[in-house]
Amino acid sequence: MQVRNQIENRQRWMAVLARTKCDDLELAWNKLSIGLHYEWLRRPETGLVLVRGRAGGTGSPFNLGEVTMTRCALRLADGTTGFAFVLGRDQRRAELAAVFDALLQRADDVATESRGLVAQFEAIQASRRELKSRKAASTKVDFFAMARGTSPE
């Protein structure tokens, strides 16, 4: 059960990091102010990924198109590996996301502080989604059809 929770947490953290803007990751990195050495397992590289969709979210899957994605992998000096897959071409963003992925797996004070930063990113993203959802809901139009009938007169 503990391993499952660790996997779910890591998936959640990686999703949050993939959606976080580069400027926010850079600020968080500077806030940590640690001298970190790592080696590249896979330098940041950009390519295309096929995106699939479903009509109405439940229909048959179809190929929607391709999007640009950057990926990388690195290993910290202590052997912890970090991976990142981010949409777009920002190689620095992928690098920082991979560094944070590696830091989050450790069991020290830096990992605890990193988890706090990722929790802040998650809260910011949730509030942005909520705001976007409220804006969309305010423009909702309910259409209805009136039944034609004969006049009682």
Rank of each mutant, 00 (worst) to 15 (best):
E8V: 11
N9M: 13
N9F: 15
R10N: 02
R10V: 01
R10C: 02
Q11A: 12
Q11H: 09
R12N: 08
W13K: 12
W13T: 10
M14H: 12
M14D: 09
M14A: 12
A15R: 14
A15V: 06
V16A: 04
L17W: 04
L17M: 01
A18Y: 03
A18H: 02
R19N: 08
T20V: 09
T20L: 03
T20R: 07
K21V: 12
K21D: 08
D23C: 09
D23E: 15
E26V: 11
E26R: 15
E26M: 13
L27D: 07
A28N: 06
W29M: 12
K31V: 02
K31Q: 01
L32Q: 00
L32I: 02
I34H: 12
I34A: 14
G35N: 14
G35W: 06
G35Q: 10
L36T: 09
H37C: 12
H37F: 10
H37Y: 10
H37A: 13
Y38A: 05
E39H: 06
E39L: 07
W40V: 08
L41G: 09
L41D: 06
L41Q: 09
R43Y: 06
P44K: 10
E45Y: 11
E45K: 14
T46R: 10
T46L: 04
G47I: 02
G47H: 03
L48T: 03
L50K: 14
V51H: 07
R52Q: 12
R52L: 00
